[in-house]
Simulated assay, not measured.
Amino acid sequence: MTMISRSADLNHPDAFEIDNVDRQILVLLQQDARMSITDIAEAVHLSATPCARRIKRLEQSGIITGYHTEVNPQKLGYSLAIYIAVSMDRHTAERFAQFEDKIQSFDEVVSCSIVTGRSEDYLLKVVVRDMAHYEEFLLHRLNRIEGVSQVHTSFELREVFNRGIIS
């Protein structure tokens, strides 16, 4: 069986080899995480036991990190999506760790990334009900995190697509 590496550098400690069947399994699970082992096995032309073993191996390797339900924030009353670029006053491991611990406690923050190529340190994606909710979030929570020195806000007009599938 020919193995195809997901990483170009197999000497990298996080590299893990997967083949085309593993890729097919990943695509199927990303499309429908509730798909049964039997249906997945049939789709990739395996029997259920080897298919289940492959899924378990993908989980144990850290390639599959979890299963989740995708929801529509607007249907839940969160009509505004906002990108917030955050600058920190000091670039120390302790300051960043403190910010990251605190930001995870805010339900409105759906993603947080450290970024390069701009003057800000973090890029957050936040969902809120309305402008009053955003104002409360910004003034009474985000700006009160020790070390936050500046924020720049961009409102999402419309999400064109969110692929969410990696193969």
Rank of each mutant, 00 (worst) to 15 (best):
L10I: 04
T92K: 04
T49S: 14
V109R: 01
S119F: 09
H140D: 05
I103G: 00
I145C: 01
R163Y: 13
A97T: 13
A132I: 13
D101R: 11
K75M: 14
S167L: 15
S7Q: 07
Y122A: 10
C112T: 11
E146Q: 14
R141M: 01
P73T: 08
Q24M: 10
R141T: 02
F16H: 13
E159V: 13
F16T: 06
L28N: 04
I165E: 10
L157Q: 12
H133M: 03
V109D: 00
Q74C: 11
E108L: 00
E59C: 12
Y78V: 06
F106W: 00
R141W: 03
P50N: 12
N143V: 00
F106E: 00
T153W: 04
T92A: 04
R54V: 01
E146L: 12
E59W: 07
A52Y: 12
F137T: 01
D107A: 09
P13A: 06
E94L: 06
S79L: 15
V126S: 01
E100R: 02
V71G: 06
N72K: 13
E136W: 03
R95N: 09
T65G: 09
L124N: 00
L29E: 04
V127W: 04
R57V: 10
F137V: 02
M35S: 09
K125A: 05
Y67H: 14
I37H: 14
Q104A: 10
L80T: 06
L138F: 01
S167A: 15
G62D: 06
L29F: 03
K125Q: 12
R90C: 03
R95V: 04
L28T: 05
L138M: 04
H91T: 07
D89R: 09
E156K: 15
V115C: 08
V86L: 02
Y78I: 06
E136V: 06
D22T: 09
L46C: 09
L10A: 07
G147W: 05
I25K: 05
G62Q: 06
F106M: 02
L139P: 02
